[in-house]
Amino acid sequence: MEHRAFRLNGFVVLAALVVLGVIAGAVAARGAAGVAVAVVLAVVLVLALTGFTVINPNEARVVQFFGRYVGSVSDAGFQWVIPLTTKRRVTLRVRNFETSKLKVNDAAGNPVEIAAVVVYKVVDSGKATFAVDDYEEYVAIQSETAVRHLATTHPYDSDQSAGTSLRDGTEVAAELTAELRDRTELAGIDIIEARITHLAYAPEIAQAMLVRQQAAQVVAARTKIVEGAVGMVGLALDRLREQGLVELDEERKANMVSNLLVVLCGDKATQPIVNTGTLYS
């Protein structure tokens, strides 16, 4: 939608208007006919002055001639465009927006609090001005909508589903950015980055979820300890058999395995008991 409006260097046009003013003054001194010509030149001069505008870096001016969009000017400096036009300012700087903390249910039905920051910029000043009422408000609303949709399609923890969870930062950020780009394209907005900045269980279930997470970690740790202990017991029995140090029947092997597992899997230091009798008493 955006296209370049007709423009000229403002200083060149200003110099031409100064010359035109001098000519009008000289013509006016030549009698009644000269005054009429001078009035016409003065009117042209006044109309031409309405075409001047100053454009800052990373800024555009959307030019309208009696309601009709005639183009945009984004070249920084002192510029001159068609007279009698309105020139609306649109910033092209990179901007960021942070959503408020939203309370939604994740894919597993757990209430969570989530917020995100969105970095964006205007790439089409025409669409940003005429496609939506207020592009800043549009980005804010679409950002919150996209964050809500993201939270409802993914679980909080990866162990609740085989897919991506909300805690998988890189994947979630890429998905959120892609969705926001689709939502804001019609407004002439380019989403540079969108990333989750706050993620937590809602206060009413936070303590219960913390206990569940701690229990899961304890189970995982105990599982690892048992796997290591079983390996060590097997290694001990194999070494004893290979080196022929002692022959153990199945009952004594079971007793040895039991004792080693207690020692290796216990969370407290064990107190050894020395058998001073025979192997079987």
Score class of each variant (00 low, 15 high):
Glu98Gly: 13
Leu45Lys: 03
Tyr69His: 08
Lys87Glu: 09
Arg61His: 14
Gly71Ile: 01
Ser100Asp: 14
Val90Glu: 11
Val43Asp: 07
Glu113Gly: 09
Ala36Pro: 00
Ala32Val: 12
Lys103Ser: 14
Ile82Ala: 11
Val40Tyr: 14
Phe78Asp: 04
Val43Asn: 09
Arg88Ala: 07
Arg89Gln: 11
Val90Lys: 05
Arg95Asn: 12
Val112Asp: 01
Asp106Gly: 06
Arg89Pro: 04
Ala33Asp: 14
Val39Tyr: 09
Val63Arg: 03
Thr85Tyr: 01
Lys87Val: 06
Val62Asp: 01
Thr99Val: 05
Leu92Cys: 07
Val70Asp: 05
Asn56Val: 06
Val43Leu: 15
Asn110Asp: 13
Val81Asp: 00
Leu84Lys: 03
Ala48Phe: 05
Ala32Met: 11
Trp80Gln: 06
Lys103Thr: 14
Phe97Glu: 07
Asn96Pro: 00
Arg88Pro: 00
Ala29Asn: 10
Ala107His: 05
Lys87Ala: 11
Leu41Phe: 13
Val46Gln: 07
Glu113Ser: 10
Ala60Pro: 02
Asn105Glu: 13
Phe66Glu: 08
Asn96Arg: 14
Asn110Pro: 00
Phe65Lys: 10
Gly34Tyr: 03
Gly31Cys: 07
Gln79Gly: 04
Ala38Glu: 04
Thr86Arg: 14
Thr85Trp: 02
Arg93Met: 02
Val37Met: 12
Val62Asn: 00
Phe52Ile: 04
Thr86Met: 05
Arg30Pro: 01
Lys101Cys: 09
Ala76Thr: 10
Ile55Glu: 02
Ala76Ile: 02
Gln79Met: 12
Val46Leu: 15
Leu84Pro: 01
Ala36Glu: 13
Ala29Ile: 07
Asn56Pro: 00
Ala107Asn: 05
Arg68Leu: 09
Thr50Gln: 10
Lys101Leu: 11
Gly34Lys: 01
Val44Phe: 11
Val43Tyr: 11
Thr99Leu: 06
Gly51Ile: 00
Phe97Ser: 09
Val43His: 05
Val81Phe: 03
Glu98Arg: 15
Lys101Asn: 13
Leu45Phe: 15
Gly67Ile: 05
Ala48Asn: 06
Ile55Met: 08
Ala36Arg: 13
Val35Gln: 15
Val90Tyr: 06
Ala32Trp: 11
Asn56Cys: 02
Val35Met: 13
Ser100Cys: 03
Gly31His: 06
Leu49Tyr: 08
Gly67Asp: 08
Arg89Lys: 15
Val62Thr: 04
Asn56Ala: 14
Tyr69Thr: 04
Arg88Val: 09
Arg61Glu: 08
Phe97Arg: 09
Asn105His: 11
Phe65Trp: 08
Trp80Asp: 02
Ser74Phe: 02
Arg95Lys: 15
Glu59Phe: 07
Gly34Pro: 04
Val39Arg: 07
Thr50Pro: 06
Leu92Pro: 01
Val43Arg: 06
Arg30Trp: 00
Val94Gly: 04
Pro83Lys: 09
Asn110His: 06
Thr85His: 06
Val35Ile: 13
